[in-house]
Design a protein around this nucleic acid. Structure first.
Lengths: 358, 358
DNA sequence: CTGAAAGCGCTTACAG
DNA sequence: CTGAAAGCGCTTACAG
């Protein structure tokens, strides 16, 4: 992700005279220009009425000519309407379509409420999460939606007890009263693993996201639960976790599969992992030999052959619901914390239905 | 995109006693608590020095106890450092991985500068774009990166002449001095079309994004250019454009291909279109029969069979470069507008190398 | 219908 | 080392 790409330019034009940044005009500037008191300008800007049509026209002309835009920060500072009209969204990695679809869902609901979204990626690093949360709070977001990493809540803990409107996605912190929305990670992983076990698989490898992420732990838990229930001990070497790009996962899974004995099935517990593993299996010619089930859906899962069996999530819907929960709280309609867990069921497309080959 | 998904809950718990939102403590609250003047608290908060160690400790204890967080808006209002530390990013659709990867690239550079990103999707609607731009300006973002739709600049025009730091991605507005970064849409589309023509294709259909988007027009232009050069007239029925989800495009392309005569090749000029068309061709059993080249890369393009030939873009890199251009201007290092056009070359993977079947 | 005063939460001058 | 005053750009009260 951090490697820079060398690119050729077709051309690079330097043009002359770019405008230099000017000081933005203020209410007083407009007032001076229109020859009225600044309070009159304020009245016109806010459509308060009680201004003679003549003055309204003069002020509006000045506003247009100077390009005046009210400063929202100053405006809301004194205003009883104490809101900034901005909510924060702290996520793991916006370049992952799972998260960007959540963001899209949040945006959709935010838009209905005339809100905007400040977002930031943590890459699963608790330190970065604390930075983002602190910065968003300092900028006085009216509420936050957070996909937390790590076990320490850090600055979040204080905000929760302060009553800052907040919705957690995926993390279910113990002993904290907070709105929560998540998929049934453990149940989904359990079901997927059971599915493979029923086909006769005994040696199943698990590839998951970094265990700093709560949902990643739940998925591993679901896997372990099903395996234990089947009386199978899972050696540590059959479990790999970390936060990587699809390309990195391709490499990791390739190396893994070069060693004997190979597992007869793999569970790839996140979309980037599923993509990387698919590429690895394909490159090694093992797609019809080793069974695979993924968590999260991926594009073209029906077009590849065999199709990719997955436990899908519904990120757009997660985003919408999370935002709806947040606005319910922002509007004071919600008092007690709500926790919603969405059920996840396996979708069979072929790759998860391959029986053990040895 | 707007259809709501019905979902089952596993459970929905209502817990008691959620904290009620409290008024945030201010400098004066801390001062009262620590029994000092509020200016002393300000000094401690900003690490200005000139405060006795004893008072520092007392103030810090009060800050911790009350959970004080300085209000960034108020802080910067009087401050000579006139910045908000926020940049705006106006894009078409954040649920499209192409745009979310640009956002990730922007975030990466913004982070280095201690900046945060306010973003919003326009869905290619000029009216929504104007709303977003106006709202961001009212919130006093220090600069903006915009992927514009439509031909009218709207509120953007005034901001450019005001000298607001701004970088355009993909739109090259005439007669306006502004930083610009884009791919070589026309050249890439031209090359892709030439590639198909060389194989003997004469009947090539074009599927592209809504022509409200500048880059979509450029891609169509490149296609037309190559076809005209080959002396082929393209009937209007061979060109389809619009902004749709992959599922919608699957439907559109399926219907299209059900009518005779079928084209021998298709050019899918955006990632969602490429995905939808791939699914349609696959469902109809035509993937090895009708040639396809896409603009933008898609996941698993090497795993499907045949592989998907594309003209890739580098969204992460686009985002980084756009942000770097913006910060160069914000830091006053750049005076004259810079225009960068990144070259795009075709990547052959099989689907674009299928000769005409009839 | 119009305006002068006070204040939002903070920083920047300027005093002691 | 500490604090009282003025001001950022606006809104909310309160006068005329």
């Amino acid at each position: 992700l951090s490697r820079r790409l060398p690119l050729d330019y077709i051309h690079r034009i330097n043009e002359p005279d770019h405008a230099r940044p000017q000081r933005r005009p203020t209410l007083r500037d407009v007032a001076g220009h229109a020859q009225v008191s600044f309070k009159t300008v304020s009245r016109v800007v806010n459509g308060e009425g009680g201004v003679s049509p003549q003055l309204v026209r003069r002020v509006e002309a000045s506003i247009a000519e100077l390009g005046y835009r009210p400063d929202d920060r100053a405006r809301r500072l004194r205003n009883t309407e104490w809101r900034t009209g901005v909510i924060g969204f702290v996520l793991v990695d916006v370049s992952n379509p799972f998260f960007s679809s959540i963001l899209r869902g949040i945006e959709e609901i935010a838009r209905k409420h005339d809100y905007f979204v400040l977002s930031g990626s943590t890459d699963g690093e608790p330190a970065r999460q604390d930075q983002l949360v602190s910065a968003f709070i300092s900028r006085r977001v009216d509420g936050m939606i957070v996909v937390p990493s790590g076990d320490e809540l850090g600055p979040l803990a204080h905000e929760i007890t302060r009553g800052t409107p907040m919705v957690f996605v995926d993390l279910e912190p113990a002993g904290v009263a907070v709105d929560l929305l998540r998929s049934d990670h453990q149940g989904g992983a359990y079901e997927a693993t059971r599915h493979l076990l029923k086909l006769g698989h005994r040696d199943i490898a698990f590839f998951g996201s970094t265990l700093d992420i709560f949902s990643a732990r739940l998925r591993l838990e679901g896997f372990r639960e099903a395996m234990a229930e089947a009386g199978i001990r899972v050696p540590d070497t059959r479990i790999r976790s970390g936060l990587h790009s699809p390309e990195q996962w391709k490499h990791i899974v390739s190396e893994f599969l070069e060693k004997e004995p190979r597992p007869t099935a793999i569970f790839t517990a996140q979309n980037f992992i599923t993509l990387g593993a698919l590429q690895a299996l394909h490159a090694l010619g093992l797609r019809s030999v080793i069974a695979q089930i993924g968590f999260d859906d991926v594009d073209l899962s029906e077009v590849v052959s065999p199709g990719v069996s997955v436990v899908p999530q519904y990120p757009l819907e997660l985003g919408r619901r999370a935002a709806e929960m947040l606005f319910r709280r922002l509007d004071g309609l919600s008092q007690t914390p709500i926790r919603e867990i969405l059920r996840n069921r396996i979708v069979e497309r072929g790759s998860g239905e391959i029986p053990p080959s040895w």
